[in-house]
Design a protein around this nucleic acid. Structure first.
Length: 114
DNA sequence: TCCGTGACGCGAT
DNA sequence: CATCGCGCCACGG
């Protein structure tokens, strides 16, 4: 259906990321699943890079377990931004128990056409 | 078209 | 907790 709307998977993923409310975070895997692409966590990361600078709340996407998967300064910026929104860290990981964003039931894709 | 490269995830070691 | 291997996939060379 998204595809029918002329949206690429990248747009679908980015759109899902935009839904993450302030003070909440979602994992790459969950974003992919919520967008209807279970198992495409990698593409989420790719989409995020591609959509950088387009106003996407990229900092709200973290790795499973609430771990920041960026490196170097980007990682610090992400952590800083999250803390700014009130996200609490337990050492190196985020308290997913209270900050993980729950998406509505992901719509299923009929098939991974190719 | 084949191949290496990742902001990934998960189970096994 | 740190690594490795494997599955997954869009992209660029």
């Amino acid at each position: 259906m998204w595809a029918k709307l002329g949206l690429t998977m990248q747009d679908q993923l980015l759109l899902t990321v935009r839904k993450i409310p302030r003070g909440k975070v979602a994992t790459y895997g969950h974003v992919a699943a919520a967008a209807g692409h279970p198992g495409r966590a990698r593409q989420v990361a790719w989409a995020l890079r591609a959509g950088a600078g387009t106003g996407v709340p990229w900092h709200r996407v973290v790795g499973s377990g609430g771990l920041i998967k960026l490196r170097g300064e980007s990682a610090m910026e992400q952590r800083f931004r999250l803390e700014m929104e009130g996200v609490r860290f337990h050492g190196k990981r985020i308290d997913m128990k209270t900050h993980e964003c729950k998406f509505g039931r992901a719509r299923r894709r009929k098939a991974r056409s190719r």
